[in-house]
Design a protein around this nucleic acid. Sequence first.
DNA 1: GCTAAAGCGGATGTCAATGTCCAGTTTGGC
DNA 2: GCCAAACTGGACATTGACATCCGCTTTAGC
Lengths: 153, 153
Amino acid sequence: MQLISRTSEYALRAVIWLVQPPARSQTTRQIATGTRTPPDYIAKVLQSLAKAGLVRSQRGLGGGFQLAGDPAQITVLDVINAVDPLERIHTCPLGLKAHGTNLCPLHCGLNDTALQMEAAFAKTKLADLLNGAMPSIPLGIKLQPDRRSPVPA
Amino acid sequence: MQLISRTSEYALRAVIWLVQPPARSQTTRQIATGTRTPPDYIAKVLQSLAKAGLVRSQRGLGGGFQLAGDPAQITVLDVINAVDPLERIHTCPLGLKAHGTNLCPLHCGLNDTALQMEAAFAKTKLADLLNGAMPSIPLGIKLQPDRRSPVPA
DNA sequence: GCTAAAGCGGATGTCAATGTCCAGTTTGGC
DNA sequence: GCCAAACTGGACATTGACATCCGCTTTAGC
């Protein structure tokens, strides 16, 4: 069981990649290489992020993707919700009349846990994933914007 | 995105069903009907629970399943781990040498969240899902052990 | 010991998430 | 204006979780 879907994971890697300097427009291929994600799939994920307004896309020669907002504002939850929203439990999946609007203890508890998780994701801003509060370097480091410098294997 | 897999959900429903009085041996079919789970699938889930030692199975006429331990001891986490363990992140999925044993900030954070979730699940005992701390009745209520009394639709 | 009720386990089917492919559109540089 | 770089969107392929099927084994009751 995974905490988040692979799609969400890829989306997070992509936006973190875009947050890192130099904040130049990055092509799908650059992002795919830099984040080690399937190129043709990350393309789809980037579409979702663009539709959600988290990234801006630019077509044509010299185009690519850029973060659309402030890294200090955008949260991990924003990113996840853009590509694969985590579902809450609104009605008991058992469809019990007896439970009415309320949830049974089990699903009440599960829902609580989901809310906790959501809160944790909402608290973490993209910017938090950059600076030294954390032990290691975010992903790889993009060096020159044009120099092929994916990530040391 | 679901918090827990359907398999885990089914497993939880099953053990909760078994916790509820009367604590008589319940057949796969009784459990399936009572918890509204696919009969042939819950059978597999029950196998897993049995292998993990959470339930005892009895073959032959009059057989079925019973909870193997103390409802005040068994946790939601125990049940989940028996059928679909939630995975922790031990090494950065990017395979970055730069990160070594450490995780990058992203996966460090995700791992933290996973641990929180695990803690929440570990805190909840099966018995907690029964008594009145919660608003509504656990699942349905099993009335007579033999009387067909699944759950009011 | 025969029979029917019940769990056991392997083989197979289904479906949504993931991943790939390709033709179309936009756009900067010459 | 032409070309090549790049995103866009639809169609298709793959995979693993979920679900079903069926024959085998165990066991209580007669």
